[in-house]
Write a protein that binds this DNA or RNA. Structure first.
Lengths: 220, 220
DNA sequence: TCTGTAGACATTGTATACAATAAAAGAACC
DNA sequence: GGTTCTTTTATTGTATACAATGTCTACAGA
């Protein structure tokens, strides 16, 4: 694997898995040491992460791990609610049998995890959800749309959201994935569009409810 | 100015002004020579341009200047039609008197250029249009939205579109800018939203008409 | 004439040394 | 004790040398 690639995924994973907390300073030198490559590929990785919004630069203080505030979440859900339905629509126009089968498998597994809820099932559900949405994006076959969305599907935010889900909501989310597969299988772009729209808004509602409870909790 | 900055704007200008044609190979070595900096800042600039979609990489052939096909244009207009109205809405909620004044001045100048049509007025209109839209984005004050849109407002495409405009359409476009300023001045988000939506769709329609005529021309 | 292969060449990828700059720490003075 | 100036240190920015790898070309053989 190229060193730049290694640096990128290493730092990215560190941020997404919470090993690097929001606000932490990441100096090129330290990262180079911990990843085991020189500063050059580290620089490249940091610029890329900056473009994706995972870090920002403070002059002479290096890269700072970005934090997600409430306003960011609102905005992310708003943009996803606009863009992901387009992905779904395009996917419905383009999906092959193989893709549909794979989506079905992912939805199946997610439903299983959502009903059983064993071990650290939330991480696995988060992962399945991520793969499901990414496969739809890939099927939509629009580099521009993918790039636009990639900055928006922030795993830490989504994982945090999953923690808010009640068992019922977890099953509903998995069920919406099933319906999405149905719509895509039927090659019905409008159906796929609106199911995806509802799906994102459902996630948003859950996130908002979680925020409210969290705030109430602090107020007590 | 930092060398990386110099490299970025130099290469970017080269592409946007058409000095580097679509499909042209840009090798790091050559660019380093022509810009007058070392390869390191050139690399940084190229990665950035890649993230913005202005070049793509072919393994062992370096950066290739991206070309805009019909499908790309369709997609860009579709995404802009979704996203720019959000910018307009947010701008209407946030604009100060100073910003409104500046927008008004830009719209004024554009109207003037559109009625006089002297010299290479199309370039100047393209520039005014660009500044108008960017100021709205800036006023919308959403880093995420700006970043998402920045990859979509491709100057070469928009400039090409302006060439298709009839005098009437040029004035209509300037007039829509005026109406947008009215909506923003009234702090009416919905109004701003729908005017911007119509404005983008107007541009799209003109672009499509231009494409059709070009195709007909070839068929004869 | 076509095809396969060897080798030169072009190009990127990486490490490292050095320069520039700004922040932090410490010393001297009031 | 506080404040300002100086020195040190930390950090990024840039250039360059070298390594790795893929591509193109020329030539030999069928």
């Amino acid at each position: 694997m190229r060193a730049a690639e290694k640096a990128y995924s290493s730092v990215r994973d560190g941020i997404l898995q919470g090993r690097y907390d929001a606000g932490l300073r990441l100096t090129e030198h330290d990262l180079a040491n911990s990843v085991g490559v020189s500063r050059t590929p580290i620089r490249e990785a940091l610029r890329r992460l900056h473009a994706e919004g995972l870090v920002h630069f403070e002059p002479n203080h290096g890269a700072i791990v970005a934090s997600f505030e409430f306003e960011d979440a609102e905005e992310i859900f708003e943009l996803r609610a606009l863009l992901e339905p387009i992905s779904a629509r395009r996917a419905a126009e383009r999906a092959t049998r193989e893709v549909i089968q794979e989506l079905l498998t992912l939805a199946d597994q997610q439903m299983l995890e959502s009903t059983q809820r064993k071990g650290n099932y939330l991480v696995r559900i988060g992962d399945l959800n991520d793969r499901f949405h990414r496969l739809i994006q890939k099927t939509a076959d629009s580099a521009r749309l993918s790039k636009t969305l990639s900055g928006l599907i922030e795993a830490p935010l989504i994982l945090r959201t999953f923690r808010q889900y009640t068992p019922v909501e977890l099953r509903r989310s998995a069920d919406q994935h099933f319906e999405l597969v149905n719509a895509i299988e039927a090659h019905d772009p409008m159906w796929a569009h609106s199911v995806m729209h509802a799906h994102i808004l459902t996630g948003r509602a859950t996130y908002l409810r979680g925020r409210l409870t969290a705030t109430d909790g602090r107020k007590k």
